[in-house]
Simulated scan of single mutants.
Amino acid sequence: MKKIILSYFPFLYKVRVQQLIWKRRLLNLNPKVRYAYRKEAAAFPFVCKKHKSILRRVLANSDPILQENKIQNLKIALAHVDGIVIHPGETFSFWQLIGKPTKAKGYIEGLMLSHGEVRTGTGGGLCQLANMLFWLSLHSPLEIKERHHHSFDIFPDDRRVIPFGTGTSVFYNYVDLQFYNGTNDSFQFHIRVTEEFLEGAIRSSRELDVQYNIEERHHQFYEKANTWYRKNEIWRIATAKQDPASVKEELMIRNNSEVKYMKSQGGPSRHEENISC
């Protein structure tokens, strides 16, 4: 019903978006929340996790130029994130750092996911940066304060190396990605774009006492009312470095998404995993 109403009155969607933007701006004024803004050029000495993701993927029926546009958008955005330090008691906010992606800032048209469809929009492709930051944070003691998942599994996998459902959705400014540092240590993100990859690392001011690993459990494709869905669980496993028998398991995410791609027969296979934009 909601979609039908918006199709007849599209201006209502824009009005609602502006309401949500201003509501978030008011929430961001909360003096009790200290946001991370300070950057340091020198890298912290201890690496918690490194990762890289492919910049150019094979996406059916999409204009390859949009992938090049995405890379330009990423370069603009990561300049606000590279070197950022999250001190004890601070909150990292994706949109507080990057701000609104506008043409005046150099952002151009890129791919975006919206309501289960692939669309284009100014600043499209920034969710690849958000995905990177989220994956890195999972390998640290940072608390996930806000994260939104894609409710649709849009694309079959293209050289995917991390579990399904570990991406995140971002939309200025009310669909945010936030981490809270409740520890006594400081953490730092380093992100860069190379010819082929988006590369990132999360570093700490002190060598951590535990090693973090991410594990996928209970992965399943299932059909309901002639529609395919995919679900799994993402667990964070913390193992004490001095005592490998000391293990803490934490359920981080429960995913359940509608699958938008299908095999010609029999539904999706285990290897057909999604790609966030």
Rank of each mutant, 00 (worst) to 15 (best):
I214D: 03
G182H: 13
N181F: 09
H190W: 14
F171V: 11
N213S: 14
T194G: 06
Q188D: 05
Y172E: 05
H190G: 07
V193A: 02
E199N: 05
L198H: 01
N184D: 15
F197S: 00
F187G: 11
F187T: 04
E199G: 00
I191F: 01
D176T: 07
H190E: 08
Q188K: 12
D185R: 15
T194R: 05
L177E: 05
F171R: 08
R206N: 11
Q188C: 11
D209R: 00
F179G: 06
E215W: 07
Y212V: 01
V175A: 12
T183W: 09
N181S: 14
E199R: 02
L208V: 00
D209T: 05
Q178E: 15
A201Y: 04
N213M: 08
E196N: 14
I214P: 07
R203G: 02
Q211R: 04
E199Q: 10
D176I: 10
E207P: 05
T194M: 08
E207R: 09
I202P: 01
G200L: 01
Y180V: 10
N181D: 11
F187P: 07
L208W: 02
L198P: 06
N181C: 13
S205R: 08
R192Y: 03
E196Q: 13
G200C: 12
E207S: 04
R203D: 03
S186G: 13
F189N: 03
V210P: 02
F197E: 14
E207T: 00
N184L: 10
R203C: 09
L198S: 00
D176M: 13
T183C: 09
S205G: 14
N173T: 07
Q178G: 08
R203L: 13
V175F: 10
I214T: 09
S205L: 04
F187H: 01
E215H: 10
E196G: 09
E195P: 04
F179D: 07
S186L: 11
F189K: 00
V210W: 02
F197Y: 15
I191E: 02
Q178K: 14
F189M: 06
R206T: 09
Y174I: 07
S205V: 10
F179Y: 14
E196M: 14
R203T: 09
I214V: 15
D185V: 12
I202R: 02
A201I: 08
H190F: 06
E207L: 07
E199I: 01
I191M: 14
Y212M: 02
I191G: 07
S204N: 13
D209P: 00
Y180T: 15
Q211P: 01
Y180S: 11
Q188A: 05
F197I: 05
E195T: 12
D176K: 05
N184V: 13
D209M: 04
D209G: 08
V210A: 03
S205A: 15
Q211S: 10
E215V: 13
R206L: 12
S204R: 06
L198Q: 04
Y172A: 00
